[in-house]
Design a protein around this nucleic acid. Structure first.
Lengths: 336, 336
DNA sequence: ACAACTTGGGACAGCGTTGACATTTTTGTT
DNA sequence: AACAAAAATGTCAACGCTGTCCCAAGTTGT
């Protein structure tokens, strides 16, 4: 007797002495139902612990649910969490719920995961592209499912996208270092093949070129193996015959590594990270910051707009970054 | 022509020249279908961009989906993120997906949110209880939906639960302080009314009683207003005529505040936090740590067990904590 | 007194899928 | 070559709900 079955509209209707359509009317809110009948129905529903079956409702209504999927590579990165929080927040305002799916940062599983979500008939798809090609989504997009690519642009797919001002953000950071005299500036990045990292690298090079530094390869530590710790990259920079007087990191992982190596170094090495992180203020670490929740909110908003007006043009939105001075980025190069 | 409609089994069947049941067989994996037919069907499906409709499938199958809901108060806390990651990971192994819903830490919305999820026919419900009473879930539980309460026990509801060794963890931390001579030990907690905080407070008091300290009220800073910053609580402790020589924090938020106030203090004040955090190692902060992903994994596993054996007894699981010595907790009291 | 509305409520079909069962085709056996 | 067993495929109904159409009983106006 663990499994008495769930009450349906018909059960409630029977108990209330009305037709199931009337019960439906009560629960759908609409329709003409007298106060008297409504009350009888609600009482019966309560007695039977009735909950409308959204599966059936959505099926009947044409197969659209009220869930929006967010596909990410790896849940452990706090960055994604904040993005997810922003999405959730924005969706909740419209009565939509978010389902979270991960691809374990594996390009192969991306299509599989997305496929499963489409089978669930999600209303919209927000994803952080990880595979090299999102053209497999083209059909779905044509069917009216909004697709928003987050943090990186999708490839071979016309879709809305929200990305950060990666290039400008990094360039601004490097400029603030060159402005106080730094010329030998290290850059650590891992995984460096990723769109965001490539952009940030471009910003780094651009800012150095502006002050006449064209040869930067020796100061770039571009890895693509998550097992290589950022600490190692930093140490290898410091071991150079002419070590950099400042270092910038392409992401929060790099920052964490750099912080561990650089503190208590004599003479101190200037540092600026990309992505803000908890306690960066306590550690006096300057960073290029932005609002990850805003990234999520914007992505959700784009999807919602597209849902409201399916024929709207696709949009590319850039979330601004800003350089936060906390001390580590303001250390001048040693006088020589 | 943005909205050509989605292909169904019947469409595929027509194109492949078979019955829709056969197409169903192909996509459900089961059943006997000749290699020849299977191929024809797959080809037709591909051409029509067919995706099985899980809504219909689940409805037909008896109204159970393959989603599990995780209800949390506030997505921004990194702690929940890791728990969610653990859940997601474990569910993915069984082909289940996680939907995330938040209650905005508002007890009133808990029932509403849960109700909506039940309407979605989630397979199981994992929640961090925030309301005072979860008895409203009793009916659902009887209907066979596993309910697992995470991080705090549910109230007025027989349900599986996974919690941390809050009391022992905190007691261990305090004992390690008393062992090196501390007697005046501050405790900061906010929001302190919460189950976990009450437990940790109890552990703190217990450890102090063991060394003969029974009067601790003066060193306890128990707040229940998220707007009161932990920094303030710490400062008010330090302002005491006889300030504590060590401080422990009830959660990561408290630790962050304490770290900001305590560093560079002379003489140094010992500190141990509850919850590990990024870069705690770089800051030499000792903490009571545990594996938040494990909390999630365990919760998911309990739900899955219950799904497999609906008549199994409810279980209460405790996730172990461990004290990590990093320096801040090993500072002895000033010699006097 | 009668048409013309309005209001509350019901009958029925069908959303896309699959389980139960029926039927046809293929295969294996002697 | 005949026949049983196995494999492949089909028919039909139903999962729980709501859209569409319909009807009965008021209500209003002339």
């Amino acid at each position: 007797m663990t499994t008495q079955s769930r009450a349906t509209l018909a059960d409630v209707a029977m108990l209330a002495g009305v037709s199931s359509k009337t019960v439906s009317r009560v629960f759908a809110g609409a329709g003409n139902v007298s106060a008297d009948t409504r009350e009888r129905v609600l009482k019966a529903a309560k007695r039977l612990r009735f909950r409308p079956n959204n599966l059936a409702r959505n099926l009947r209504r044409g197969g659209v649910t009220n869930t929006v999927a967010f596909v990410i590579g790896d849940l452990k990165n706090p960055f994604y969490f904040h993005v997810a929080a922003g999405i959730e927040r924005e969706l909740a305002l419209r009565g939509l719920t978010m389902v979270l799916a991960t691809t374990d940062d594996s390009p192969d599983s991306e299509e599989r995961v997305v496929d499963a979500l489409i089978s669930q008939r999600v209303r919209a798809l927000l994803l952080i592209p990880i595979a090299d090609d999102q053209s497999y989504l083209e059909g779905e997009r044509q069917l009216g499912t909004p697709v928003v690519s987050v943090d990186r642009p999708a490839r071979n797919l016309v879709a809305d996208s929200v990305v950060l001002q990666n290039r400008q953000g990094m360039a601004e950071a490097v400029r603030s270092l060159t402005a106080i005299g730094h010329r030998r500036i290290g850059f650590i990045s891992n995984p460096s093949a990723m769109y965001t990292q490539r952009e940030r690298l471009a910003g780094y090079r651009e800012a150095l070129r502006e002050v006449g530094v064209h040869e930067t390869a020796a100061w770039e530590r571009l890895d693509d193996d998550p097992d290589i710790s950022p600490e190692l990259a930093v140490q290898s920079l410091l071991a150079l015959p002419e070590p950099p007087t400042a270092i910038v990191a392409g992401n929060n992982r790099g920052s964490a590594g750099a912080v561990r190596v650089l503190r208590n170094l004599e003479p101190p090495v200037a540092f600026i990270g990309f992505d803000d992180f908890e306690l960066a203020d306590a550690l006096d670490i300057s960073v290029v910051a932005y609002d990850p929740m805003e990234l999520g909110r914007t992505a959700a908003r784009l999807a919602l707009e597209h849902l409201e007006d399916p024929d709207s043009f696709t949009k590319q939105v850039e979330i601004p970054t800003r350089l936060i001075h906390r001390g580590s980025g303001e250390i001048p190069p040693p006088a020589r």
